[in-house]
Each structure stands twice: as C-alpha cells, then as structure tokens.
C-alpha cells in the first residue's frame, strides 16, 4: 500500500499532537499537582453530622500545617453554614480544605468561577482542597436541586489579605 509523503508527515504530526495533549495533562497532574474531587471524605451521621467523628462544628479551623485551614460546612435547606448568614473568611496565600456535608437533602457546593464543586450528600463528607493566592470574594451556590428555595441558596467566600485576618477570633 502506498502512502503519499504528505500523508505520512500528517500522520506523524497528528500522533505527536496527541502525545503533546497527554503530556500536558500528565504534567498538570504530576508536576503542578492539580487534581480532582475524589471520594476520600468518608461517612458522617445523616441528620447530625457534627456528632460524627469525621466532622466538626461548622467553621474555620487551623489545618495540619502552617498556612493550611480546614473549613467545615454544612449545607441545609436553604443556606450554607457558614457562608450564608456570615461569609467564610480565609486569608490569602493559604491552602484550604473544605469538608462539606448535608444534614437534610442533596445539595451542591460550588465556589463560582472555580472548579471547587461538589455534591453534598447526607451521610457522606466531601473533601476538596484548593490554594487561594490572592484576596478576592467568591460566591457559593447550590447547584443541586434541593427544594422550593433552591434558587435562593447562596453564600460567600472571602479571601482576605493576611493582615485583615485575625487568627484568634476567626479560627476556632
């Protein structure tokens, strides 16, 4: 079977392009450390998550190391605790792990404009970690239908300059 020279060049080029795509995604995962939400959160009590070992009172806590924070969020109908009545505040240049669960029905927890996005399931905990470099304010929406007030369910996440973040009063 005879293949034209140009066809041969094109075939090689296409395979190299595919290799480039795979290499960039691999670099993103391995080199730059970017990941996806996974199922590692574990289980909690379906109606009273705080009673479980896996969960704590909603709020911002100091994490495993300097600059790391654990934020525990409960989603209810139709508010985020914390998030709706008071914003979630973390300092810039921090790594934040969100521990999110629901105490009634399915909800969603999405930091708008980012890929921090997970369903919150009663009885299970979702763990999502992200780095926040710059001060900014993000909205949080519920993107999983949860009832008549679903479309009003929202909250906010404030990444504040470190000088404005008071460790003693804001971290539990």
């Amino acid at each position: 079977m005879h293949v034209h020279r140009f066809e041969r060049i094109w075939l090689v080029g296409s395979l190299l392009l595919i290799a480039l795509f795979v290499a960039t995604v691999t670099y993103g995962a391995v080199g730059a450390g970017y990941g996806m939400v996974d199922a590692g959160g574990g289980q909690v009590d379906g109606t009273d998550p705080t009673a479980s070992e896996n969960f704590r009172e909603p709020g911002v806590y100091n994490g495993s190391e300097e600059g790391h924070y654990d934020v525990y969020v409960e989603t209810q109908r139709f508010l985020f605790v914390p998030g709706t009545n008071e914003p979630i505040r973390v300092p810039a240049n921090s790594t934040v792990t969100f521990h999110v669960t629901s105490s009634d029905v399915l909800h969603g927890f999405e930091v708008v404009g980012t890929n921090i996005n997970t369903m919150t399931v009663p009885g299970q905990k979702a763990m999502v970690t992200a780095e926040f470099d710059e001060p900014a304010e993000y909205g949080i929406v519920c993107n999983e239908y949860c009832g008549s007030g679903h479309h009003t369910m929202e909250g906010s996440l404030q990444v504040v300059p470190p000088s404005e973040f008071n460790e003693t009063s804001e971290v539990q």
Binding site: G33, Y34, G35, T114, I116, T129, A130
Partner: peptide, 26 residues
C-alpha cells in the same frame, strides 16, 4: 490549523486553566 490548535491548547491549559484562579489540588 495545526499550529493554531497546538498554541490554543497550550494557552487554554496553562494560562486559562492552571494559572487562572484557585483550582482543586486534591
């Protein structure tokens, strides 16, 4: 076209995705 696709891919992945805002790391 090949050049456009390759450059757009590199731009979208490295600039718009990795370098743009908080992204999940785990």
């Amino acid at each position: 076209y090949f050049a456009v696709v390759s450059l757009t891919w590199l731009f979208m992945y490295f600039v718009e995705f990795l370098d743009n805002g908080p992204t999940v790391i785990g």
